[in-house]
C-alpha cells in the first residue's frame, strides 16, 4: 500500500507528499515520474519524483492543485493510502559533467527541478538555479534548492523577493560572459518556450522536461505524443525530457488544452476545494 507518511502545505495551491513506495524509491533517478490515481474513479495523472529514500522506502512528490485530480491528491491526509501508484516512469534526465549548469524552474516546476539540479551538482558541475514564483510567499523549497545548488536566484512577478520579473528576464540580466555548458528547464509551457528561444540565441544546449497529457505512461496509447525535430515522440517512454530547441511547444500547448472545457466542468462540479490553503 502506498501510504502517505508526510504532508506539507507549501503554498495555498501546492502540497508536498511523502509516500511509501519501496520499489520506486529503490530504482528512481532524477527526471523520472510516477502515475497515480488518488481515488478509484480518478484519471491517471503523472507526477515527478522529487525525492526518494531507498532506506525508508518512500518517495516525495509535490503537487499543484489545478484540476479535479490534483485537488483530490492535494487533499489527501497523512495516513491515507493512494490506491494506484506506478513507476518509476520515463527516461532519467541527461546529467553530464560540463562545468557550469543552469537549471531553470517556474511554478511547481521548481520542485521538479530539485532532484535534477542535485544530480548535476553531484556529477561535479557548478549549478546555478533560476527559479520563478508569482510573489515571495509562493516560493517553494528554498532550503532544498539552496542545499542542492551552488547558487539559487529567484524572480518574482511582483518583485516582492529577488529579481522583479519572470525567469527569462532574470536569465537575460544574469547571463555570464562565459555561458553555461548546459541548461535544464521545467515549468509552464510558455516559460519553457521562452527559455528555449533565448538559449537558442545563446547557442547553449538546453533540455526541457515536457508535461503532455498522459494516460497509461507505458507507451501504449500515444496520447502523450509530442513533435520534436519534426518527429513524433511518445513523451512517457522517450521523454519526458527532450532537446528544447527542437520541441514544437505550440502543438504541446494546444494538445494540453484538449479537454479544457470538460476539465472545467469536472472542477466546478467537484466540492473538494476544502482542505487547500
Amino acid at each position: 500500500m502506498n501510504r502517505i507518511l508526510k504532508r506539507r502545505q507549501l503554498t495555498p495551491e501546492i502540497v508536498l507528499l511523502e509516500v511509501t513506495a519501496p520499489r520506486v524509491a529503490r530504482r528512481w533517478k532524477p527526471g523520472n515520474f510516477i502515475i497515480i490515481r488518488p481515488t478509484p474513479e480518478s484519471e491517471r495523472i503523472p507526477l515527478t519524483i522529487v525525492d526518494g529514500d531507498a532506506g525508508k522506502g518512500s518517495i516525495t512528490m509535490v503537487v499543484q492543485a489545478i484540476g479535479k485530480t490534483t485537488m483530490q491528491t492535494a487533499a489527501l491526509r497523512e495516513g491515507d493510502a493512494i490506491p494506484d501508484l506506478a513507476g518509476p516512469l520515463g527516461e532519467p534526465a541527461t546529467v553530464e559533467r560540463v562545468g557550469h549548469v543552469l537549471a531553470v524552474g517556474g511554478g511547481v516546476g521548481v520542485a521538479e527541478l530539485l532532484p535534477v539540479a542535485g544530480a548535476f551538482r553531484r556529477a561535479g558541475n557548478y549549478v546555478t538555479a533560476i527559479c520563478g514564483a508569482r510573489n515571495a510567499g509562493l516560493r517553494i523549497l528554498q532550503e532544498g534548492l539552496a542545499a542542492a545548488t551552488d547558487e539559487t536566484l529567484w524572480a518574482t512577478d511582483d518583485g516582492s523577493a529577488g529579481f522583479h520579473g519572470n525567469v527569462v528576464e532574470l536569465m537575460q540580466a544574469w547571463k555570464p560572459a562565459t555561458p553555461p555548458g548546459l541548461i535544464h528547464a521545467i515549468g509552464p509551457i510558455p516559460m519553457m518556450r521562452a527559455v528555449a528561444s533565448l538559449t537558442r540565441e545563446w547557442g547553449v544546449r538546453t533540455y526541457a522536461s515536457l508535461n503532455p497529457v498522459m494516460i497509461d505512461g507505458t507507451g501504449m496509447c500515444g496520447g502523450c505524443r509530442v513533435t520534436v525535430g519534426g518527429k513524433v515522440r511518445f513523451a512517457c517512454v522517450e521523454g519526458p525530457e527532450f532537446d528544447a530547441h527542437e520541441v514544437d511547444f505550440d502543438e504541446l500547448a494546444r494538445r494540453n488544452r484538449a479537454y479544457a472545457d470538460k476539465e472545467k466542468e469536472a472542477r466546478e462540479a467537484h466540492p473538494c476545494r476544502i482542505g487547500l490553503g
Binding site: E41, S42, E43, R44, K68, T69, I215, D216, M220, C221, G222, G223, R225, T227, V232, E251, R254, R255, R257, A258, Y259, K262, E263, A266
Partner: peptide
C-alpha cells in the same frame, strides 16, 4: 497530432479501462 485524432488504443483505453462512458468517471 490535432486534437480529436486518437490511436485506437488511446480511444479504447479512455473508454474501456478508464470508463469515460460513465458519468462518474473523471477521464474524458
Amino acid at each position: 497530432n490535432l486534437i480529436g485524432v486518437y490511436t485506437a488504443n488511446e480511444f479504447l483505453t479512455r473508454i474501456n479501462l478508464m470508463q469515460a462512458y460513465r458519468k462518474e468517471s473523471d477521464t474524458p
